[in-house]
Design a protein around this nucleic acid. Structure first.
Lengths: 212, 212
DNA sequence: CAAAGTTCTAGAACGATATTCTGGTAATTT
DNA sequence: AAATTACCAGAATATCGTTCTAGAACTTTG
């Protein structure tokens, strides 16, 4: 569970060393990702130059290319890091729920909260046109599946108890968070009333969509 | 209402000539857009080179730059053309509905139908990170608003009759098409069960979300 | 119909910038 | 401490977006 703010991003030496998981330590790698987020957010991935990122991160080209294979590599790593953060935050929040209804509602609330707190990151998560490598693409799918599984694991008991409807596995996430996701995307792109204003309405809709 | 398949894309000479609106005529401009869609879809906007597009379209660099200001200009024009096509198709379909419920359901059905028929185009519509010029950005907002207005114009009578709930203007579109949109995006990105399989379920959810 | 203008096309030249290369310094392991 | 590895720097290179020059194909106008 990497994070840009309370970081880990341990260099994946495959043979897991016995040292503790390197709790934080301000790393060059993270500096680069942080700088990249700013650059990508303000000008888009394409227009942001390696020079911009490198300058803002306070490192050299060589250093940047030591940590990442390419500019797209940075873009990909950034996206994967952010989605992992986001998924963690969401699942953590959902796990606190005691019943199905509050679990479902917490998804909408969590989505809004995270977006309002990290608009740049959320905007970047919505931005596609990041050319994922085959490895990155696989990782992305893996994380996505993992999230869906995680959600379902939380929901399963409530489905069994009949509080939640029994639906195709892939239907829960879009049914619950599709509307708020669409709303937030629009809010991030152009100016629109804050998601806070429709949170309750969308939470209710989410609940209606999946209740038993 | 331009279209890539049954085309118009008339060269906007501002002083509208008396000639009929140039019904189709295979134009160089369209060839370029078509080629661009293929290139952008297979490698992403960034990695697609002007050379690729130009070669596939069978034209020269000069010609391409005569019709568009830049590569981003091509990407922007393509996006705007496609969204216009899509919006037209959706509104046309919705207008046929006689009552609120079938109008709402037609949104979901229309979304699925268009996506299944034009996956490349829909994938491109979902791709952000197209650096819109100020003009393009304005046009985009204009089209988006126009669509929302159009949807509301169709729904208004049903809202007045009480068949549909009275909600914030910006809530209808995400509530109705948010889930299917999220589902389709995932389907287009990685492999997943066809949207056809959840169409009925999502149509029902859409209806529940906005019925009076 | 001829001439003048305009649109469209071509491809070479240019400039910006992503990426590679060479060489070096700190850290870690043996 | 020697060796190996991780990390970093900046110059050199290669790729590609864009501009420029020139000319062909239409369109309009006298």
């Amino acid at each position: 569970m990497p994070s840009l703010k309370s970081p880990s991003l341990k260099s994946r030496t495959e043979k897991a060393r016995s040292t503790q998981p390197e709790p934080d330590k301000p790393s060059r790698k993270r500096d680069i990702l942080l700088a990249a987020l700013d650059c990508f957010d303000s000008t888009g991935v394409e227009l942001a130059t390696i020079g911009d990122i490198q300058r803002l991160a306070g490192c050299s080209v060589g250093s940047l290319y030591h940590h990442f294979r390419s500019k797209e590599g940075v873009a990909e790593a950034l996206w994967l890091t952010l989605i992992e953060d986001f998924n963690d935050a969401m699942l953590r929040r959902m796990k606190k729920a005691k019943d199905g209804q509050s679990a479902v509602r917490s998804v909408v609330a969590g989505y809004v909260a995270w977006s309002v707190k990290n608009p740049k990151s959320m905007r970047y998560l919505h931005a596609r046109d990041i050319d994922f490598s085959t490895a990155g693409s696989a990782r992305k799918k893996e994380l996505l599946d993992q999230y869906i599984q995680g959600v379902f694991a939380i929901f399963a008991p409530f489905v069994r108890s009949g509080e939640l409807a029994e639906l195709p596995l892939h239907a829960y996430v879009p049914l619950i968070s599709g509307p708020i996701e669409a709303y937030v995307r629009r809010w991030l792109a152009v100016e629109a009333p804050s998601p806070k204003q429709v949170e309750a309405l969308f939470a209710q809709a989410a609940w209606n969509a999946v209740k038993g």
